[in-house]
Amino acid sequence: MDSIILQVLNGLDKGAAYALIALGLTLIFGTLGVVNFAHGALFMIGAFCAVFLQRVLSYSRISIDESQKDFLGNPLKVETPFVEIWFGPDVGGSIVDWSVPLAILFAIPVMIAVGFAMERGLIKHFYKRPHADQILVTFGLAIVLQEIIKYFYGANPIPTPSPEAFIGSYDFGVMLGFDANRIIYPYWRMIYFAFAMVLIFGVFAFLQFTTFGMVVRAGMADRETVGLLGIDIDRRFTIMFGVAAAVAGLAGVMYTPIVPPNYHMGMDFLVLSFVVVVVGGMGSLPGAVLAGFLLGILESFASTTWATTTLPGINQIIIYLVAIIVLLTRPRGLMGRRGVMEE
């Protein structure tokens, strides 16, 4: 029982990342009808917003400390971050320590701008093109973005720790009546899960309770009729692209303490996120979110020793297996509307 709970917990944060990326993908596909293979790159750029902010906040003044030597025997250059000089070591240190959450504020405008540039610069020319063309061009864009990041940041993963306060894990097991150390879950992953839920609910609330959201929902359901009512839906859909980009970027920002960001992380998440979208039902927002969590948890279960010894390699293919089964038996996905994808 405890190992089941544990694997469910384990699947939640990765599932949350999948859900967020899939949500953005579905938003873009459902509004603009574009299959956006550069969405994983947006996740990566968000993560590197956190890296960038951490570097900026750690930007240091270099002073020579004659009493210490560096590796060549020259006097040691000591780096003191400017924020520590300005605000004192305590406040300054905390600012650097909290770079990842602070990066949320930084990432929102950056991601919206990046999304906007992507959409206006490249993707809008492909609205009417066949999906295969869209895939090729957005995939190419993803590779370019990846290489740009690699050029500036190198190929190594860059440690981006969470604030000190959140290091470590919480013993859920004890709370539920199990023995100690049977169900533990890191604090930051809990925070990530909560953050993801807030974002997801935010997007749904925005769509459900604002007028803008109502127009977008109407446009997703019946684009032609919305045009008949005088509404220029393209403009609104472009804004949704920015929203989807921001969601993916924020998912990336907060993920950095879990897996140190590297230039390749976008691709790692992209393919699986697409599988999530297909399983959840293309065009269904709740389907994307639900499928994201389900597949994250499923992947977690498939990685247990029991699973990998019974069916070696199952953890690498389980998600694809599920996708194949879904596509064969219920092609519209778990929550897709009837008729979609059923030709």
């Binding site: 999906h131 997703m220 359901a221 019946d222 032609e224 293309m282 092609p331 897709g336 030709e343």
Partner: peptide, 11 residues
């Protein structure tokens, strides 16, 4: 879903 061309093959 809008009435756009969604074929399984295409996507």
């Amino acid at each position: 879903m809008s009435k756009t061309d969604l074929t399984r093959r295409g996507v």
